[in-house]
Amino acid sequence: MLNEWLLALARWLDTHEWSTALHESLYMYAWIETTHVLTLMVFLGMLFMIDLRMLGLAFTEVPASKLADRLDRPMMLGFAVMVITGFLLYYAIPERTTQSIWFRIKVVLMIAAGINAFLFRAKMLAADGSWDEDRRAPKRMRVGAGLSLLLWAGVVVTGRSIAYDWFDCNKDLSYLMYWAAGCVDELARFE
């Protein structure tokens, strides 16, 4: 049901003139894609430094919450740019992206990373700087920081993989893969 609904949405977006124009543009798509990738340096770069601080591997002389606070704004700015350019990239090629197994894993990983970040922030605020001067954050926080690094690395990996056509719906895949990628038409053939 969800797959049909998502596909219908993608097909509707695909009828938009702007979507086609973007996809077939000489430069626009490549520029947006480049901006998306280069902004990794802002968003992920800041995130890496914060997480490495929690793990005691960088900026150990700076109080943890101070670093997290100062890097928060540039990080979120980078994130905003990535969301906007990311949406445009989806908008340019909606149908194939909707049925991309990589895109689906990426969205799940991002939701997980978001929940992790939310819990991390809540715990850090609750601690009210009690471990701020420590070289390393408490163990629970370190787990959160490590998880954050892993999840976002996973987002980059799956994001890059969207470009590869290994598991596209038009390929000969197993039922499980069709199901996971939401290949509605191909699944119908199994019934």
Binding site: V37, L40, M41, L44, G45, F48, M49, P74
Partner: peptide, 11 residues
């Protein structure tokens, strides 16, 4: 690596 390199340079 690009993200890490860019992050350190920016900071």
């Amino acid at each position: 690596s690009l993200a890490l390199l860019g992050g350190t340079v920016l900071l």
